[in-house]
Nucleic acid binder design. Structure first.
Ligand SMILES: [Mn+2]
Ligand SMILES: [Mn+2]
Ligand SMILES: [Mn+2]
Ligand SMILES: [Mn+2]
Lengths: 221, 221
DNA sequence: AATAATATTTAGATAAGTCTAAAAAATAAT
DNA sequence: ATTATTTTTTAGACTTATCTAAATATTATT
């Protein structure tokens, strides 16, 4: 068993290193977890002694196989609870993160597996992030941001990169919720903002580069 | 907000004082929480400084109004989660306590109120204990143990006093689950064991005094 | 290559919660 | 009313997780 703090660090390390094989840096971890670098160093020593990370002084850190597996289990719990909160308790997608941040630490494999079953083994959480199965396995999503889509293409919104409350509220307000079919009608070279058509709503909307880079889509075929 | 340890102490104090207005004693609290008397003293000082208990050195302790209210909220969460686990996730009644012991500390009024609604505002948990509402109010159950029932009387099992796994398994095995209609057919004066008829199962069973004193019943009318 | 800037680690302190062992108070037994 | 026993509290130590401030290592700049 790991403590709540250990689990939060493992999860943070997973998110910080999943796209950066060279490892995570002390200051980045501190910024991500809103704590101090010295606290991070202490925890890295502890996780290292438990063989959950590979850590050498001043050299950055990566998760060990064991640490990655453990991180994925916490992430699995987080995302399943988020799905539960939206699907069974009618929370909005911008309300669930904080509560899931607590629920992800409940220690019971049986519990989370039964929640999984109750929900019908969902593959993606309310923000479009994949839910690992009991073995930590999940399908990699073909990583495409709305920013990278050319003019004329029709795509479906399938997730967000930024899951902050402020971004989710914005996205919801302009109608880019998950599952929405949209078409890129124009790309303005001045600031690379996009004119998007939303056929289901019969509306069009202008989205900034900052927005389009945080919306994940898959190509409609 | 209170810490997890504080919440567990408040809950323990509630259970230890609900039937004992003179207050709880340090050693009893320590035994109940499987900790040491010195740890209890430390926590009582802390709870006292937070105005959650009335505590004077060597004089025992009782919950303040504020402390009682807080304890009832934790108990509410505990019992609602137990009901959820049994009703929605098909856990057995002897499996839910440990998990609820963790879930009761999730901080979100909105969450527990929505769970309450999802479950249809249940009045009793899987062990027959009353579930306080959002204001801490609940109906006192007419407190009758099977031990006190005279020969010939027909009653319905409505709860247990001891909620330990070992007792619940025994009770389940002999068929005295909640809702079961039973009739006291004989009382043997030697050890005050009872011969109980269970019409729905067409069986009869002999229960010891230790058992009958831990089974709550209500008189059928 | 030496110096400046940045990043990371260490040293020492604090808070919560727990423990053991010793002291003090309350209660029971002579 | 002493003495003995039990209960409770205090003193001091330990663990986890955090912090500030100082020291050290790494990297960038002249
Ligand atoms: Mn968390
Ligand atoms: Mn999510
Ligand atoms: Mn608990
Ligand atoms: Mn219960």
């Amino acid at each position: 068993m790991n403590t709540l703090a250990e689990e939060n660090y493992l999860k943070a390390l997973y998110h910080l290193t999943v796209q950066a094989p060279e490892g995570a840096y002390t200051n980045d971890i501190a910024a991500y977890l809103q704590t101090k670098a010295s606290s991070v160093t202490d925890m890295l020593k502890k996780l290292s002694s438990k063989k959950l990370v590979h850590y050498k002084k001043y050299q950055g850190v990566i998760l060990s196989k064991k640490g990655k597996q453990k991180a994925l289990q916490v992430i699995r719990k987080h995302r399943l609870w988020e799905y539960f909160l939206v699907e069974k308790l009618n929370f909005r997608w911008d309300e669930v993160h904080e509560i899931a941040e607590q629920l992800e630490h409940i220690q019971s494999d049986e519990l989370i597996n039964r929640i999984d079953k109750l929900l019908g083994f969902p593959k993606y959480d309310p923000h479009g992030d994949p839910i690992p199965d009991a073995d930590g396995y999940f399908e990699e999503i073909p990583f495409l941001t709305l920013f990278a889509i050319p003019i004329g293409e029709t795509v479906t919104v399938c997730g967000v990169i930024d899951s902050s409350v402020s971004f989710l509220k914005l996205i919801e307000n302009i109608g880019l919720t998950i599952g929405t079919l949209i078409k890129v009608e124009e790309i303005f070279e001045f600031d690379h903002s996009l004119k998007i058509a939303i056929p289901s709503k019969k509306t069009k909307v202008l989205v900034s580069q900052q927005i389009s880079k945080n919306v994940l889509v898959k190509i409609k075929k």
